[in-house]
Design a protein around this nucleic acid. Structure first.
Length: 377
DNA sequence: TTGACACGCCAAACATTACA
DNA sequence: TGTAATGTTTGGCGTGTCAA
């Protein structure tokens, strides 16, 4: 076990704290100015007011439900005085063995196929669905991001886990822990595959310094006038097929490294070698997650995660954290921008794609006439 | 048919940092 | 200072392949 000193990366969610609505605080909504209702208001204004009132009602309901859950927690708590020393781990509540196993599997799949990181996971699970949530406005603010996460979750959760079960402590904890484990596993795997993926010597990716020296330009590092430097989000060599120095809608998310990283995650390290040699990821001899999860198609989340993992694998960062401790790259922010970009592209193609490969998804995006994303313009 | 082997998943142990 | 949170590593185990 290498005992490397590690500086805790600042949580990228901190930045969002200011924009974060106090969703469980009913007093907050009463501070907000209420739109004025008049007879001569146009339909779209009336719609806005209806949404505003609906949100207020939802907030009040949420506050009540949160209070009820808290009361239940307190009631269930053991009231014996705490003993000295490290307390024994208590099993508060738990699902059946089969349910727990299923939740673990769902969390693993969700991490790879939907969101590598979730914003405030525990809050998301305790947030109630906003019926007025608009997927097209998902990335506008913190609240809609949470609703987007919730929508993603509800899409993958079987009916038996929706409702009260997904508010259960054992369920949230299991999902949380397993997302972390899965992140760690795939990060470890992708980095192990890095020499194969990037056609380089093992020593090139061995240390933070060697990766920085050899690959930082490929993952978006640019020097700016005045001695400053930064990492680009979209103008990144390895995201593109045959990168020509600028963002290209025809080749972005087509980089070989993305395909290889995705193959490594879903079919195992052996598939990376096979994909490079024959163009097809061979079937792993053991069980691979592709089989376990019955994967039939890629998603904006999985394509974005492949982009992040491919970049991170050859970055100077030692750990896969929301914000890189060595590079300062906001990995979680970049991930969300990728998903936003891909989803916007897909929404313009009638909201869905059911094709069987990442290539097909990219082909659809290719046809899109979208120019360079606004934040990179 | 069977045993050896390769491959990949997973959970537990461990390390480190942040925070109360 | 103790604990929670987060991430890494690794050994055990399950599964598929192949040769004898």
């Amino acid at each position: 076990m290498p005992a490397t000193k590690r500086a805790r990366a600042p949580d990228s969610s901190d930045e969002e704290e200011e924009n974060r609505p106090p969703s469980l605080d009913s007093r907050a909504s009463s501070r907000s100015p209420s739109p004025e209702l008049r007879d001569d208001l146009p339909a779209d204004e009336l719609y806005k007011i209806a949404r505003f009132q609906q949100k207020k009602a939802n907030k009040a309901t949420k506050a009540l439900q949160a209070a009820q859950r808290k009361l239940t927690d307190i009631t269930n708590e053991d009231d014996t005085p705490p003993k000295r020393g490290r307390p024994k781990k208590r099993k508060v509540d738990s699902g059946s063995e089969d349910d727990t196993k299923e939740v673990k599997n769902l969390a693993h799949k969700f991490t790879v196929m939907n969101l590598l990181w979730m914003r405030d996971l525990k809050c998301t699970f305790n947030t109630d669905v906003d019926e007025q949530y608009d997927p097209l406005a998902r990335w506008e603010n913190w609240e809609s991001k949470v609703q987007g996460q919730l929508a993603d979750l509800l899409e993958i959760l079987p009916p038996k886990f929706r409702g009260e079960t997904m508010h259960a402590q054992w369920f949230i904890n299991t999902f949380h822990v397993e997302m972390g484990t899965q992140r760690s596993n795939i990060a470890n795997r992708v980095r192990r595959c890095a020499p194969e993926v990037f056609n380089c010597a093992a020593t090139d990716v061995l240390t933070s310094e060697s990766r920085r020296d050899k690959f930082r330009k490929q993952i978006g590092y640019v020097e700016q006038p005045g001695g400053k430097s930064k990492y680009e989000t979209f103008k990144v060599d390895l995201l593109h097929k045959n990168y020509n120095g600028k963002f290209d809608v025809d080749t972005v998310f087509r980089g070989d490294a993305l395909h290889l990283a995705f193959a490594g995650v879903t079919h195992g390290p052996g598939a990376v070698t096979a994909l490079k040699a024959s163009g097809q990821p061979t079937q792993a001899t053991g069980k691979c997650v592709s089989q376990l999860w019955h994967l039939t198609n890629s998603t904006p989340g999985s394509i974005s995660a492949s982009g992040i993992l491919a970049r991170w694998a050859v970055s100077a960062d030692i750990e896969l954290t929301p914000r890189g401790a060595q590079t300062g790259i906001d990995w979680q922010g970049d991930l969300e921008k990728y998903i936003e970009y891909l989803q916007n592209g897909l929404n313009k193609r009638k909201n869905l794609f059911s094709d069987s490969s990442m290539q097909d998804a990219m082909d659809m995006l290719d046809a899109d006439e979208e120019e360079e994303p606004a934040e990179e313009a």
